[in-house]
Write a protein that binds this DNA or RNA. Structure first.
Lengths: 346, 346
DNA sequence: ATGAAAGCGCTAACAA
DNA sequence: TTGTTAGCGCTTTCAT
């Protein structure tokens, strides 16, 4: 592979001069600049970023860890992060933990070993242990979490989203439509404890404040996947006293719920209202489009990247204000027409 | 940051010995091994992969370039690639070109400069110019394309998928259901020439062979996005002589078509049949589920990664046989009930 | 079984 | 404006 020395030799200068041409940090005569550039082009020279990174102690790369890349929410996050980082001359190295703690740990260490300049950890703890993150941070490594739960906030700086308010928006919307029996499909298997629990809490709080008790048996769990949302919805719909509305804590599960309702021959929103969370692009194109809570991914990544870059440069950083949710009301929710508590006809 | 020398000093040995412990390539007494490991742990040492890569001339990383990461098809591809590469001890560095040629060029050069061991370029030429790829290959850089069109096949080794056969499957299926007027939504704006044209050609060939001429005005174009599929479908459905079935050359556009039909109050598949291409997970959960052509992403990436690794090791590689399509018949297609050529009622 | 020495390709003082 | 020198953190012969 062509090195800086090959260029230097060909151009009849020294490696330092070639380096100067490349970086533009030192004055170089136009004549030699031209000559050097010519040979760079001719020999197809590309600076070895490993060598450069070794000495500059910077790779101009930021690591991004997400739970599951096949969830469009995270794919869209990666896309946003890439665009934003690119503006600052940084590259994103994204990986997904597949919600596996061991793999998450490995990825974290690998990113560190590659000397990325900093790391952003997205989403739930799935796939990453707090101690693992803690170790890196205590060694002074620039890290931050993005939309994680409270546990992490005290460890890494956290760019946060007001999930609680999001859950409230959902409840308020459904209550206003006359729904009183609301089924919930949350992420997190029961044993592990709910992971999307802030979204649920917000919803329950608003219900309680409005004076409507929540039937705890209407709280079911999924794993954020399409199929798990469908399964949970089928389970809710099979009850003798099915809910008139279902709140899924992410959009994929909401789509699963739509599919479940369709299979049972139910019309949405006439027979059942469905609300999601995330606002992935797809929710505008389902039939009907899904009412969901908007998480502004671009704003989130703008804040995160900006904050991480500051952290990398050793600047003082203020944790940005919590991002607020907005409800996108679409066709999957309507006034409750079915008599509450009555079984669904098939 | 802790270096190998810090460990060596702490353990009272030399850097070479620590290296031997780490690599396991040289015999080391159990006693020193223990001691070294202890300090590695204690000081939180992580080998600097930049330095290692510099000397071993390998980063154990393979670059993966896709057009658009927010298309679940490519997100699923990346996920598959990561799993497969991981088995071989390799890491994937994935980036999307956002279908931008300039950005694609930049990414390619960056990947090269980072000294990834090889690169896989996925999907259409969107975002990457043939000459750019050619330059790298001619310099002996391990590269291959995956499911690209014929143009590339002569340049880089190509893991291919039989798009033509896929298009035929669609036509045969629709013909068997009695459809004669088939609308097509293909990727590629008209000026640039169709990029998904093999999928289209296959379909047209089968139609011609069956003795049914294709009305060229029923060929419309999108850009593989949800919205473009919807727009194109609306356009087709607004005609006085709308098609009885629509073939979208990818699933996102098919979902867009579903949405368009829904907005126009049409029932699928009674009023209109819709077929997609790719078999993204979502197609099973739409209402109704979408009939589509299966592209086996895992098989594709298995072949690609395996082949690239061989290329990296300088082994001779045989181009694997073209992967064949399989049609997944689902609820979005049914027997043509509407009288051909009649306008759609709203 | 361990160590000494050289060098991967680059940048960054510092000199000239 | 250009060159000299040293060294980033690691692996790898080659000695011992």
């Amino acid at each position: 592979m062509t090195t800086i020395y090959d260029i230097a030799r060909a151009a009849g200068v020294t490696a330092a001069t070639v380096s100067h041409v490349l970086s533009g940090k030192k004055p170089v005569s136009e004549a030699t600049r031209q000559k050097v550039m010519k040979y760079i082009d001719e020999l197809g020279y590309r600076p070895n970023l490993l060598a450069r990174g070794l000495i500059t102690r910077s790779t101009r790369t930021i690591g991004l860890i997400v739970p599951i890349i096949s969830n469009p929410f995270y794919a869209e996050v990666i896309d946003a992060a890439e665009r934003i980082a690119h503006r600052a001359g940084f590259r994103i190295m994204a990986t997904n933990t597949q919600d596996d703690t061991l793999l998450g740990q490995e990825i974290l260490e690998d990113l560190h070993a590659r000397r990325v300049d900093g790391i952003i950890v997205m989403g739930g703890s799935g796939g990453l242990s707090i101690p693992a993150i803690n170790t890196l941070i205590s060694h002074g490594f620039p890290m931050l979490s993005c939309i994680w739960d409270e546990e992490t906030e005290r460890i890494a700086p956290n760019v946060s989203f007001d999930y609680l308010a999001g859950g409230r928006l959902v409840a308020e919307h459904l209550l206003a439509l006359g729904h009183r029996r609301i089924g919930i499909i949350a992420h997190g298997v029961a044993e592990k404890g709910p992971q999307h629990h802030l979204r649920v809490s917000g919803c329950l709080e608003a219900l309680a404040e409005a004076g409507y008790p929540f039937d705890a048996t209407l709280l079911t769990y999924g794993d954020s996947s399409l199929q798990s949302g469908k399964d949970a919805a089928l389970q809710l719909l099979a009850r003798l006293d099915p809910p008139t509305a279902i709140f899924a804590t992410n959009d994929l599960m909401a789509i699963g719920a739509l599919s479940a309702a369709w299979e049972r021959g139910l019309h949405i929103p006439r027979d059942l209202s469905v609300v999601g969370f995330d606002n992935i692009e797809l929710t505008t194109y389902t039939t009907p489009p899904i009412t969901t809570v908007i998480i502004d991914r671009v704003a989130l990544m703008e804040k995160s990247v900006e904050m991480l870059l500051a952290l990398i440069e050793g600047k003082h950083v203020d944790v940005p204000p919590t991002l607020k949710p907005v409800l996108a009301v679409r066709g999957s929710t309507a006034h409750s027409s079915r008599k509450e508590g009555s079984a669904l006809l098939e």
